[in-house]
């Protein structure tokens, strides 16, 4: 069975770092006038997007093409996938057509893992429900590496503050794992209705008052607030959210000079962040998008071309104490007790 990137846990710190190192090489490739290498010539990558995400899909397609791979791209609305063909049938059909890797985006947590059970091809999780979005986290880590510099690809000593709708955010789950794996301290800030119901075992602290943590923040990661959250009575109103957890001009002034502001996009200007603050130099949203391509090139190359070992199998980051008789395989292949 081929290897896959389903979760940041599949990489661990060492794996994240080797992806970062590869990303440096692919950033160089991307900067050329002909940003293409023949590394994955003859490989076929199937992009299965069961959820609208043009940005992520284009980023993966650009990455695949710059590696000279062939791309089969399926958006749910334009194919038989919307006509009731099951996920399994689609995967097996594309497998029979020679797909070497599947890039899977799906509204259901665990969908990419299911796909990996049905195929020998490599599987990349491009976002599964509220669960994970590992390549976004890798792009974010790489963006921070480029900004903070250093050869070691570590975040030791940095304090990352993740603000907003953690509960429904695959980006937050992946970034908590990635940031803490690289040594950062992570604080989650937001209303209790938007926090996961149980944070036992998460290596994070939780704070309700954003003003209190900003002076000590190296990274402020703003999560997107979906408008339906107010319909579900998770929030009284967007206005109240912005007043309490938006990065307003007043709050931006609380940040230390070294701070970096991130957002997985697309930003709701005026909701999560003041429109003017969003355009300041410390807001690296453009870099996050730009770095997505070399990072995804690195992931595809790592899975299909490099022959490199996968990351430390002891890459569990979030500790969930579920007993050890049946070790959950979603948090790494190690037999070690997870604490």
């Amino acid at each position: 069975m081929s290897r896959s990137l389903l979760s940041v846990d599949d990489l661990g710190a060492a794996g994240i770092q080797s992806i970062m190192r590869l990303s440096d090489s692919f950033a160089e490739v991307s900067s050329r006038s002909i940003p293409r290498v023949p590394a994955l010539r003859g490989k076929t990558i199937a992009a299965l997007f069961y959820e609208d995400s043009t940005r992520t899909r284009l980023s993966f397609e650009a990455a695949a093409k710059r590696l000279s791979a062939d791309v089969m791209s399926f958006a749910v609305k334009s194919s038989s996938m919307s006509k009731g063909e099951s996920l399994r049938d689609t995967v097996q059909t594309l497998g029979a057509m020679g797909a070497d890797a599947f890039v899977v985006r799906h509204a259901s947590a665990g969908a990419a893992r299911l796909v990996s059970r049905w195929t020998d091809a490599a599987v990349v999780n491009a976002g599964d429900g509220w669960h994970e979005h590992p390549t976004q986290a890798l792009a974010d880590c790489y963006t921070l590496h480029r900004r903070f510099g250093g050869a070691a690809f570590t975040m030791a000593g940095l304090h990352a503050v993740i603000v907003g709708d953690v509960k429904h955010s695959r980006v937050a789950r992946s970034n908590v794992k990635a940031f803490t794996a690289l040594g950062a301290r992570v604080t989650l800030v937001g209303p209790a209705t938007l926090m996961p119901p149980c944070l036992d075992g998460w290596p994070v602290s939780v704070e309700v008052d954003l003003d209190r943590v900003l002076p000590d923040a190296d990274i402020v990661y703003l999560l997107r607030l979906q408008s339906e959250r107010t319909d579900e009575s998770l929030l009284p109103s967007q206005r109240e959210y912005t007043a309490r957890w938006g990065l307003t001009r007043r709050r931006a002034a609380l940040l230390p000079g070294r701070a970096t502001v991130m957002h997985p996009g697309p930003m709701n200007r005026g909701v999560e962040i003041d429109p003017e603050v969003a355009d300041r130099e410390f807001c690296v949203v453009g870099d996050q998008v730009r770095n997505g391509v070399p990072v995804r090139m690195a992931v595809l190359f790592w899975l299909l071309g490099s022959g490199l070992p996968t990351g430390e199998s002891s890459g569990q980051v979030l500790a969930v104490d579920g007993g050890d008789a049946h070790q959950p395989d979603s948090i790494g292949a190690s037999d070690e007790e997870v604490r």
Binding site: L22, D24, V37, A39, F301, G305, S306, G307, L308
Partner: peptide, 21 residues
């Protein structure tokens, strides 16, 4: 670094040491 141009990709581990300059 010619890792991405090799014709034996997948036959043996290939990793760029440092980005091309």
């Amino acid at each position: 670094d010619i890792s991405f141009y090799r014709d034996d990709l997948g036959l043996r581990p290939v990793a760029p040491e440092e980005a091309t300059f």
